[in-house]
Design a protein around this nucleic acid. Sequence first.
DNA 1: CTAATACACAACTATTCGGTTGTGGATTCA
DNA 2: TGAATCCACAACCGAATAGTTGTGTATTAG
Lengths: 110, 110
Amino acid sequence: MAAASDPTRRAILARLAEGPASVTDLARPFRMTQQAVSKHVACLERARLIQKRREGRLRVCTLNPEPLEQIAGWAEGFRELWTANFRRLDALLDDLAKDKSKPERHPRKK
Amino acid sequence: MAAASDPTRRAILARLAEGPASVTDLARPFRMTQQAVSKHVACLERARLIQKRREGRLRVCTLNPEPLEQIAGWAEGFRELWTANFRRLDALLDDLAKDKSKPERHPRKK
DNA sequence: CTAATACACAACTATTCGGTTGTGGATTCA
DNA sequence: TGAATCCACAACCGAATAGTTGTGTATTAG
């Protein structure tokens, strides 16, 4: 999932969502070197977010949907939990305000 | 979105999905210092994934659902382009565990 | 064959990042 | 009041990361 946190890699994913592309196709819009983009592509491939196949001297990249579904599911899980909690938010805030009876640790040094 | 790519911060989000918590509450499960967790919380707050309010000497954190919906929507956009071929979502936690790949420590110069 | 294209490997660099220690302000408790 | 608790600011450190240049290799074009 860290692979999807870089803006360049997200742009690459967005481009591939429109269809397959070679590495140099992917590199063209960016103001960085071919090698830098090649590294991003390799990163996405390691994370299995994309796949690469040879086609002559081209490396054609395609999107791999399954891990993206996992990301979607992850964030969606939070949304569902939160909306469930929202209904009883008042009760939770009340509990927290009264729940100060816990003994704590964390001494000081000086 | 990079804010959600760190495992510690994902754990914090997961904790907050169950309800509000103070910073020290959030720090307790981790084997790092309070200051380190405080930084993670600040990071999540900057990304507006959470909110913090004062309550006596406590800083109570709550989840902010909208940006998480954006993440879900972002990944969902990709998914929709491919749902003709896929409908499985079984290995959700599988990927969170294997997060890391293996870059090598550099050999020698030429 | 030769030249050009497409791509990746290796080494280096600068910046970011996750963590630390040290400290001090604010608040609450006894 | 004074001690303890909660929390963040600052300075620092090592590792990871995103970029660079330089080069090598396979493939296609002429």
